[in-house]
Design a protein around this nucleic acid. Structure first.
Lengths: 213, 213
DNA sequence: CGTCACCTACCGACCACTCGGTAGGTAATC
DNA sequence: GATTACCTACCGAGTGGTCGGTAGGTGACG
Protein backbone atom coordinates (compact mmCIF):
# COMPACT_ATOMS: atom_id res chain seq x y z
CA UNK A 1 0.00 0.00 0.00
CA UNK A 2 2.87 2.33 0.63
CA UNK A 3 5.45 3.64 -1.76
CA UNK A 4 6.88 0.34 -2.74
CA UNK A 5 7.45 1.43 -6.28
CA UNK A 6 9.83 3.99 -4.93
CA UNK A 7 11.98 1.20 -3.68
CA UNK A 8 13.12 0.63 -7.18
CA UNK A 9 14.64 4.08 -7.40
CA UNK A 10 17.35 3.46 -4.91
CA UNK A 11 19.80 6.04 -6.17
CA UNK A 12 16.95 8.46 -6.64
CA UNK A 13 16.33 8.75 -2.93
CA UNK A 14 19.87 9.84 -2.28
CA UNK A 15 19.52 12.63 -4.78
CA UNK A 16 16.19 13.70 -3.34
CA UNK A 17 17.82 13.97 0.05
CA UNK A 18 20.73 15.97 -1.32
CA UNK A 19 18.41 18.48 -2.91
CA UNK A 20 16.28 18.80 0.19
CA UNK A 21 19.39 19.23 2.31
CA UNK A 22 20.66 22.00 0.06
CA UNK A 23 17.44 23.87 0.55
CA UNK A 24 17.37 23.38 4.30
CA UNK A 25 20.99 24.43 4.68
CA UNK A 26 20.27 27.50 2.58
CA UNK A 27 17.32 28.45 4.75
CA UNK A 28 18.87 27.91 8.14
CA UNK A 29 22.60 27.44 7.69
CA UNK A 30 24.39 24.22 8.53
CA UNK A 31 24.33 24.60 12.28
CA UNK A 32 20.78 25.87 12.28
CA UNK A 33 19.52 23.01 10.15
CA UNK A 34 18.35 19.69 11.54
CA UNK A 35 18.32 16.28 9.98
CA UNK A 36 14.68 16.02 10.90
CA UNK A 37 13.88 19.03 8.74
CA UNK A 38 15.67 17.45 5.80
CA UNK A 39 13.90 14.17 6.38
CA UNK A 40 10.49 15.77 6.51
CA UNK A 41 10.89 17.22 3.02
CA UNK A 42 11.47 13.84 1.47
CA UNK A 43 8.89 12.02 3.57
CA UNK A 44 11.32 10.13 5.73
CA UNK A 45 12.27 10.12 9.35
CA UNK A 46 15.55 11.47 10.57
CA UNK A 47 16.80 7.89 10.83
CA UNK A 48 15.88 7.28 7.24
CA UNK A 49 18.22 10.09 6.19
CA UNK A 50 21.00 8.65 8.29
CA UNK A 51 20.52 5.39 6.48
CA UNK A 52 21.80 7.07 3.31
CA UNK A 53 24.36 9.40 4.84
CA UNK A 54 26.34 8.33 7.86
CA UNK A 55 26.34 11.75 9.51
CA UNK A 56 25.09 15.28 9.10
CA UNK A 57 28.60 16.38 8.31
CA UNK A 58 28.97 13.92 5.48
CA UNK A 59 25.64 15.04 4.12
CA UNK A 60 26.91 18.60 4.00
CA UNK A 61 30.11 17.63 2.27
CA UNK A 62 28.26 15.69 -0.39
CA UNK A 63 25.80 18.52 -0.93
CA UNK A 64 28.67 20.91 -1.51
CA UNK A 65 30.44 18.57 -3.84
CA UNK A 66 27.33 18.05 -5.92
CA UNK A 67 26.52 21.73 -6.24
CA UNK A 68 30.06 22.68 -7.02
CA UNK A 69 30.18 20.09 -9.74
CA UNK A 70 26.92 21.28 -11.30
CA UNK A 71 28.14 24.87 -11.16
CA UNK A 72 31.38 24.07 -12.87
CA UNK A 73 29.57 22.26 -15.60
CA UNK A 74 27.33 25.24 -16.09
CA UNK A 75 30.23 27.67 -16.19
CA UNK A 76 32.51 25.63 -18.37
CA UNK A 77 30.06 24.09 -20.79
CA UNK A 78 26.79 24.95 -22.35
CA UNK A 79 26.21 26.94 -25.48
CA UNK A 80 28.73 29.49 -24.28
CA UNK A 81 31.54 27.00 -24.17
CA UNK A 82 33.87 29.08 -26.26
CA UNK A 83 32.82 32.58 -25.20
CA UNK A 84 35.38 34.66 -23.29
CA UNK A 85 35.39 34.02 -19.54
CA UNK A 86 34.16 37.48 -18.60
CA UNK A 87 31.15 36.91 -20.83
CA UNK A 88 30.48 33.55 -19.23
CA UNK A 89 30.81 35.06 -15.75
CA UNK A 90 28.25 37.71 -16.63
CA UNK A 91 25.98 34.95 -17.85
CA UNK A 92 26.46 33.05 -14.60
CA UNK A 93 25.57 36.10 -12.55
CA UNK A 94 22.41 36.65 -14.58
CA UNK A 95 21.50 33.02 -14.11
CA UNK A 96 22.13 33.27 -10.39
CA UNK A 97 19.78 36.23 -10.21
CA UNK A 98 16.97 33.83 -11.04
CA UNK A 99 17.92 31.29 -8.37
CA UNK A 100 17.99 32.98 -4.97
CA UNK A 101 17.88 29.64 -3.18
CA UNK A 102 21.11 28.41 -4.67
CA UNK A 103 22.80 31.74 -4.19
CA UNK A 104 21.71 31.82 -0.59
CA UNK A 105 23.05 28.37 0.13
CA UNK A 106 26.52 29.30 -1.02
CA UNK A 107 26.52 32.72 0.61
CA UNK A 108 25.41 31.35 3.95
CA UNK A 109 27.62 28.28 3.93
CA UNK A 110 30.73 30.08 2.70
CA UNK A 111 30.53 32.64 5.47
CA UNK A 112 29.63 30.06 8.07
CA UNK A 113 32.62 28.01 6.99
CA UNK A 114 35.07 30.57 8.35
CA UNK A 115 33.93 29.76 11.88
CA UNK A 116 35.77 27.38 14.14
CA UNK A 117 35.78 23.72 13.36
CA UNK A 118 33.34 24.09 10.53
CA UNK A 119 33.17 21.00 8.34
CA UNK A 120 32.86 23.06 5.15
CA UNK A 121 35.97 25.09 5.81
CA UNK A 122 38.41 22.92 3.86
CA UNK A 123 35.99 22.81 0.99
CA UNK A 124 35.65 26.57 0.70
CA UNK A 125 39.31 27.29 1.31
CA UNK A 126 40.24 25.03 -1.53
CA UNK A 127 37.39 26.22 -3.71
CA UNK A 128 38.37 29.86 -3.50
CA UNK A 129 42.01 29.08 -4.13
CA UNK A 130 41.32 27.06 -7.25
CA UNK A 131 38.71 29.53 -8.41
CA UNK A 132 41.24 32.34 -8.22
CA UNK A 133 43.83 30.27 -10.01
CA UNK A 134 41.58 29.14 -12.82
CA UNK A 135 40.00 32.50 -13.32
CA UNK A 136 43.37 34.25 -13.42
CA UNK A 137 44.50 31.83 -16.09
CA UNK A 138 41.34 32.46 -18.09
CA UNK A 139 41.83 36.18 -17.85
CA UNK A 140 45.39 35.87 -19.05
CA UNK A 141 44.00 34.21 -22.11
CA UNK A 142 41.24 36.69 -22.73
CA UNK A 143 42.64 40.02 -21.71
CA UNK A 144 46.38 39.51 -21.96
CA UNK A 145 47.96 42.90 -21.67
CA UNK A 146 44.65 44.65 -21.77
CA UNK A 147 43.95 44.78 -18.08
CA UNK A 148 44.21 48.20 -16.49
CA UNK A 149 47.81 49.19 -15.79
CA UNK A 150 49.12 47.82 -12.54
CA UNK A 151 46.40 45.21 -12.17
CA UNK A 152 47.67 41.67 -12.38
CA UNK A 153 45.41 38.88 -13.52
CA UNK A 154 45.46 37.17 -10.09
CA UNK A 155 44.39 40.46 -8.53
CA UNK A 156 41.64 40.87 -11.09
CA UNK A 157 40.48 37.32 -10.41
CA UNK A 158 40.29 37.90 -6.65
CA UNK A 159 38.37 41.12 -7.22
CA UNK A 160 35.93 39.48 -9.60
CA UNK A 161 35.14 36.77 -7.10
CA UNK A 162 34.85 39.32 -4.32
CA UNK A 163 32.40 41.42 -6.32
CA UNK A 164 30.27 38.38 -7.13
CA UNK A 165 30.13 37.30 -3.51
CA UNK A 166 29.63 40.74 -2.09
CA UNK A 167 26.86 41.62 -4.50
CA UNK A 168 25.06 38.43 -3.63
CA UNK A 169 24.79 39.39 0.01
CA UNK A 170 23.40 42.81 -0.80
CA UNK A 171 21.07 41.37 -3.41
CA UNK A 172 19.69 38.69 -1.10
CA UNK A 173 18.83 41.33 1.49
CA UNK A 174 17.34 43.82 -0.98
CA UNK A 175 16.62 42.23 -4.36
CA UNK A 176 14.49 45.14 -5.51
CA UNK A 177 17.16 47.67 -4.74
CA UNK A 178 20.27 45.89 -5.96
CA UNK A 179 20.45 45.00 -9.63
CA UNK A 180 23.08 42.34 -9.36
CA UNK A 181 23.63 41.58 -13.05
CA UNK A 182 23.82 45.25 -14.01
CA UNK A 183 26.26 46.04 -11.22
CA UNK A 184 28.44 43.12 -12.13
CA UNK A 185 28.38 44.29 -15.74
CA UNK A 186 29.57 47.71 -14.61
CA UNK A 187 32.47 46.13 -12.84
CA UNK A 188 33.41 44.11 -15.91
CA UNK A 189 33.41 47.33 -17.88
CA UNK A 190 35.86 48.81 -15.39
CA UNK A 191 38.22 45.92 -15.99
CA UNK A 192 38.30 46.69 -19.67
CA UNK A 193 39.04 50.34 -19.10
CA UNK A 194 42.72 49.72 -19.78
CA UNK A 195 41.85 48.88 -23.35
CA UNK A 196 43.56 50.98 -26.04
CA UNK A 197 40.20 52.44 -26.89
CA UNK A 198 39.57 53.60 -23.36
CA UNK A 199 37.06 56.32 -22.64
CA UNK A 200 35.53 55.34 -25.94
CA UNK A 201 32.33 53.42 -25.59
CA UNK A 202 29.84 53.73 -22.82
CA UNK A 203 29.69 51.05 -20.21
CA UNK A 204 26.05 50.81 -21.04
CA UNK A 205 26.57 48.76 -24.14
CA UNK A 206 28.55 46.17 -22.25
CA UNK A 207 25.97 44.73 -19.87
CA UNK A 208 25.24 41.04 -20.27
CA UNK A 209 22.50 39.72 -22.42
CA UNK A 210 19.33 39.29 -20.46
CA UNK A 211 18.91 41.75 -17.69
CA UNK A 212 15.48 41.97 -16.24
CA UNK A 213 14.83 44.41 -13.47
CA UNK B 1 35.42 34.84 48.62
CA UNK B 2 35.33 35.56 44.90
CA UNK B 3 35.53 38.80 42.97
CA UNK B 4 32.89 40.62 44.85
CA UNK B 5 34.62 43.92 44.42
CA UNK B 6 33.64 43.65 40.80
CA UNK B 7 30.10 44.17 41.91
CA UNK B 8 30.77 47.84 41.95
CA UNK B 9 31.29 48.01 38.25
CA UNK B 10 27.74 47.40 37.29
CA UNK B 11 27.78 48.99 33.87
CA UNK B 12 31.15 47.47 33.25
CA UNK B 13 29.78 43.95 33.36
CA UNK B 14 27.37 44.69 30.56
CA UNK B 15 30.16 45.83 28.34
CA UNK B 16 32.27 42.82 29.22
CA UNK B 17 29.40 40.61 28.19
CA UNK B 18 28.92 42.46 24.93
CA UNK B 19 32.55 42.05 24.00
CA UNK B 20 32.57 38.39 24.92
CA UNK B 21 29.38 37.85 22.94
CA UNK B 22 30.88 39.50 19.89
CA UNK B 23 33.80 37.09 20.03
CA UNK B 24 31.62 34.05 20.54
CA UNK B 25 29.27 35.01 17.73
CA UNK B 26 32.28 35.55 15.50
CA UNK B 27 33.66 32.14 16.29
CA UNK B 28 30.50 30.11 15.96
CA UNK B 29 27.83 32.29 14.39
CA UNK B 30 24.68 33.30 16.18
CA UNK B 31 22.87 29.99 15.94
CA UNK B 32 26.01 28.04 16.75
CA UNK B 33 26.81 30.15 19.80
CA UNK B 34 25.46 29.46 23.26
CA UNK B 35 24.80 31.77 26.14
CA UNK B 36 26.82 29.44 28.31
CA UNK B 37 29.89 30.04 26.14
CA UNK B 38 29.45 33.78 26.49
CA UNK B 39 28.97 33.46 30.23
CA UNK B 40 32.07 31.36 30.67
CA UNK B 41 34.29 34.06 29.19
CA UNK B 42 33.19 36.62 31.72
CA UNK B 43 33.14 34.23 34.64
CA UNK B 44 29.38 33.98 35.00
CA UNK B 45 26.75 31.36 34.56
CA UNK B 46 24.38 31.40 31.66
CA UNK B 47 21.71 32.84 33.91
CA UNK B 48 24.03 35.58 34.97
CA UNK B 49 24.16 36.71 31.38
CA UNK B 50 20.38 36.58 31.16
CA UNK B 51 20.29 38.88 34.14
CA UNK B 52 21.76 41.63 31.98
CA UNK B 53 20.13 40.78 28.67
CA UNK B 54 16.62 39.38 28.62
CA UNK B 55 17.26 37.00 25.75
CA UNK B 56 19.92 35.77 23.39
CA UNK B 57 18.29 37.67 20.58
CA UNK B 58 18.42 40.96 22.41
CA UNK B 59 22.05 40.32 23.22
CA UNK B 60 22.77 39.92 19.52
CA UNK B 61 20.95 43.10 18.61
CA UNK B 62 22.85 45.10 21.17
CA UNK B 63 26.15 43.64 20.08
CA UNK B 64 25.45 44.68 16.52
CA UNK B 65 24.40 48.14 17.51
CA UNK B 66 27.52 48.68 19.58
CA UNK B 67 29.89 47.48 16.89
CA UNK B 68 28.20 49.44 14.19
CA UNK B 69 28.41 52.56 16.25
CA UNK B 70 32.11 52.06 16.96
CA UNK B 71 32.75 51.42 13.30
CA UNK B 72 30.97 54.55 12.22
CA UNK B 73 32.95 56.59 14.68
CA UNK B 74 36.14 55.11 13.34
CA UNK B 75 35.19 55.74 9.75
CA UNK B 76 33.80 59.21 10.23
CA UNK B 77 36.14 60.62 12.84
CA UNK B 78 39.70 60.18 13.95
CA UNK B 79 42.70 61.95 12.56
CA UNK B 80 41.35 61.34 9.07
CA UNK B 81 38.22 63.30 9.65
CA UNK B 82 38.60 65.45 6.61
CA UNK B 83 40.29 63.06 4.22
CA UNK B 84 38.36 62.01 1.12
CA UNK B 85 36.09 58.99 1.68
CA UNK B 86 38.04 56.66 -0.59
CA UNK B 87 41.11 57.35 1.47
CA UNK B 88 39.23 56.72 4.68
CA UNK B 89 37.82 53.49 3.28
CA UNK B 90 41.31 52.29 2.39
CA UNK B 91 42.37 53.11 5.91
CA UNK B 92 39.44 51.15 7.30
CA UNK B 93 40.34 48.11 5.22
CA UNK B 94 43.93 48.27 6.41
CA UNK B 95 42.73 48.54 9.97
CA UNK B 96 40.39 45.60 9.48
CA UNK B 97 43.29 43.52 8.22
CA UNK B 98 44.69 43.67 11.74
CA UNK B 99 41.46 42.58 13.41
CA UNK B 100 40.32 39.26 11.98
CA UNK B 101 37.97 38.68 14.87
CA UNK B 102 35.89 41.75 14.19
CA UNK B 103 35.90 41.12 10.48
CA UNK B 104 34.80 37.56 11.04
CA UNK B 105 31.91 38.58 13.24
CA UNK B 106 30.44 40.82 10.59
CA UNK B 107 31.10 38.43 7.74
CA UNK B 108 29.49 35.52 9.54
CA UNK B 109 26.56 37.43 10.95
CA UNK B 110 25.77 39.31 7.75
CA UNK B 111 25.57 36.11 5.75
CA UNK B 112 23.68 34.28 8.46
CA UNK B 113 21.21 37.12 8.56
CA UNK B 114 19.84 36.30 5.12
CA UNK B 115 18.42 33.04 6.48
CA UNK B 116 14.83 32.65 7.53
CA UNK B 117 13.61 34.44 10.60
CA UNK B 118 17.05 35.62 11.55
CA UNK B 119 16.98 38.32 14.23
CA UNK B 120 19.80 40.27 12.60
CA UNK B 121 18.10 40.48 9.24
CA UNK B 122 16.43 43.88 9.75
CA UNK B 123 19.68 45.28 11.07
CA UNK B 124 21.74 44.24 8.07
CA UNK B 125 19.09 45.13 5.53
CA UNK B 126 18.96 48.62 6.89
CA UNK B 127 22.69 48.85 7.39
CA UNK B 128 23.49 48.01 3.79
CA UNK B 129 20.86 50.40 2.50
CA UNK B 130 22.12 53.34 4.52
CA UNK B 131 25.74 52.42 3.82
CA UNK B 132 25.06 52.56 0.09
CA UNK B 133 23.25 55.84 0.42
CA UNK B 134 25.86 57.56 2.54
CA UNK B 135 28.77 56.26 0.56
CA UNK B 136 27.19 57.33 -2.72
CA UNK B 137 26.72 60.81 -1.30
CA UNK B 138 30.34 60.92 -0.17
CA UNK B 139 31.53 59.81 -3.59
CA UNK B 140 29.49 62.49 -5.23
CA UNK B 141 31.40 64.96 -3.15
CA UNK B 142 34.82 63.50 -3.74
CA UNK B 143 34.77 62.28 -7.28
CA UNK B 144 32.03 64.32 -8.85
CA UNK B 145 32.26 63.81 -12.57
CA UNK B 146 35.45 61.86 -12.29
CA UNK B 147 34.00 58.41 -11.95
CA UNK B 148 34.52 56.17 -14.96
CA UNK B 149 32.01 56.87 -17.71
CA UNK B 150 28.72 55.12 -17.26
CA UNK B 151 29.26 54.38 -13.58
CA UNK B 152 26.88 56.18 -11.29
CA UNK B 153 27.84 56.95 -7.72
CA UNK B 154 25.20 54.60 -6.26
CA UNK B 155 26.60 51.82 -8.44
CA UNK B 156 30.13 52.64 -7.35
CA UNK B 157 29.01 52.59 -3.73
CA UNK B 158 27.39 49.16 -4.06
CA UNK B 159 30.50 47.83 -5.77
CA UNK B 160 32.80 49.25 -3.11
CA UNK B 161 30.81 47.58 -0.38
CA UNK B 162 30.67 44.35 -2.34
CA UNK B 163 34.43 44.34 -2.82
CA UNK B 164 35.05 44.97 0.86
CA UNK B 165 32.73 42.15 1.91
CA UNK B 166 33.87 39.72 -0.72
CA UNK B 167 37.54 40.27 -0.02
CA UNK B 168 36.94 39.68 3.65
CA UNK B 169 35.61 36.18 3.04
CA UNK B 170 38.58 35.25 0.88
CA UNK B 171 41.00 36.83 3.30
CA UNK B 172 39.56 35.06 6.33
CA UNK B 173 39.96 31.72 4.61
CA UNK B 174 43.47 32.41 3.26
CA UNK B 175 45.09 35.40 4.93
CA UNK B 176 48.54 34.54 3.59
CA UNK B 177 47.32 34.34 0.06
CA UNK B 178 44.94 37.29 -0.12
CA UNK B 179 46.39 40.74 0.47
CA UNK B 180 43.17 42.47 1.33
CA UNK B 181 44.41 46.08 1.62
CA UNK B 182 46.41 45.87 -1.60
CA UNK B 183 43.51 44.37 -3.52
CA UNK B 184 41.14 46.98 -2.22
CA UNK B 185 43.64 49.64 -3.24
CA UNK B 186 43.71 48.20 -6.73
CA UNK B 187 39.97 48.49 -6.92
CA UNK B 188 40.04 52.08 -5.75
CA UNK B 189 42.54 52.81 -8.51
CA UNK B 190 40.09 51.37 -11.01
CA UNK B 191 37.47 53.80 -9.86
CA UNK B 192 39.77 56.69 -10.65
CA UNK B 193 40.31 55.51 -14.17
CA UNK B 194 39.19 58.81 -15.62
CA UNK B 195 41.88 60.54 -13.62
CA UNK B 196 45.57 60.72 -14.56
CA UNK B 197 46.10 58.59 -11.49
CA UNK B 198 48.73 56.01 -10.97
CA UNK B 199 48.04 52.58 -9.59
CA UNK B 200 49.61 51.75 -6.31
CA UNK B 201 50.35 48.31 -4.96
CA UNK B 202 49.82 49.69 -1.52
CA UNK B 203 46.87 51.90 -0.98
CA UNK B 204 48.43 53.53 2.03
CA UNK B 205 51.05 55.51 0.21
CA UNK B 206 49.06 58.47 -0.81
CA UNK B 207 50.05 61.91 0.43
CA UNK B 208 47.09 63.89 1.69
CA UNK B 209 46.74 65.85 -1.49
CA UNK B 210 43.38 67.06 -0.49
CA UNK B 211 41.02 67.12 -3.38
CA UNK B 212 38.35 69.49 -2.39
CA UNK B 213 35.57 69.74 -4.85
C1' DC C 1 14.76 47.05 54.62
C1' DG C 2 15.14 47.17 49.84
C1' DT C 3 17.68 46.63 45.80
C1' DC C 4 21.03 44.72 42.98
C1' DA C 5 23.81 40.94 41.36
C1' DC C 6 23.94 36.67 40.76
C1' DC C 7 23.35 31.60 41.82
C1' DT C 8 21.10 26.78 42.17
C1' DA C 9 17.72 24.14 40.44
C1' DC C 10 14.94 23.06 37.01
C1' DC C 11 11.96 22.61 32.63
C1' DG C 12 10.62 21.34 28.07
C1' DA C 13 12.34 21.20 23.63
C1' DC C 14 15.50 19.76 20.52
C1' DC C 15 19.85 17.79 18.92
C1' DA C 16 22.73 14.00 16.35
C1' DC C 17 23.19 9.48 16.61
C1' DT C 18 22.52 4.25 18.00
C1' DC C 19 20.18 -0.08 18.46
C1' DG C 20 17.26 -3.43 17.28
C1' DG C 21 14.01 -4.52 14.81
C1' DT C 22 10.56 -5.37 10.42
C1' DA C 23 8.98 -5.61 5.66
C1' DG C 24 10.06 -6.87 1.43
C1' DG C 25 13.04 -8.26 -2.56
C1' DT C 26 16.66 -11.53 -4.74
C1' DA C 27 18.94 -15.50 -5.67
C1' DA C 28 20.72 -19.89 -4.98
C1' DT C 29 19.68 -24.63 -3.36
C1' DC C 30 16.98 -28.64 -2.68
C1' DG D 1 7.92 -24.62 -5.49
C1' DA D 2 9.54 -24.34 -1.19
C1' DT D 3 13.36 -23.36 1.90
C1' DT D 4 17.33 -20.89 3.21
C1' DA D 5 20.32 -17.03 3.21
C1' DC D 6 21.18 -12.55 2.66
C1' DC D 7 20.31 -7.83 1.05
C1' DT D 8 18.27 -2.99 1.05
C1' DA D 9 15.22 0.31 3.11
C1' DC D 10 13.58 1.95 6.31
C1' DC D 11 11.12 2.99 11.38
C1' DG D 12 10.31 3.15 16.78
C1' DA D 13 12.38 3.82 20.76
C1' DG D 14 15.92 5.40 23.22
C1' DT D 15 20.78 7.70 24.73
C1' DG D 16 23.24 11.36 26.34
C1' DG D 17 23.74 15.87 25.68
C1' DT D 18 22.74 20.94 24.89
C1' DC D 19 19.69 24.56 24.24
C1' DG D 20 17.22 29.08 25.85
C1' DG D 21 14.62 30.44 29.41
C1' DT D 22 12.12 30.54 34.22
C1' DA D 23 11.50 30.50 39.32
C1' DG D 24 13.06 31.31 43.46
C1' DG D 25 16.49 32.07 46.51
C1' DT D 26 20.91 34.11 48.94
C1' DG D 27 24.09 37.37 50.27
C1' DA D 28 26.27 41.86 49.97
C1' DC D 29 25.62 46.78 49.91
C1' DG D 30 23.39 51.25 50.47
Amino acid sequence: MDGQQARRRAGHRREEILQAALRVFAERGYRGASLAAVAERVGLTQQGVLHYFPSKERLLVEVLRLRDQLDRVRFAGGELGDAPPSRRLAELVSYNATRPGIVQSFTVLAAESVTEQHPARPFFTQRYASLRRELAASLDGELAGRLPPGLSSPAAAALLIAVMDGLQTQWLLAPEEVDMPALFGSFLALLRAGDPGRTAGQAAEKPPSTNSS
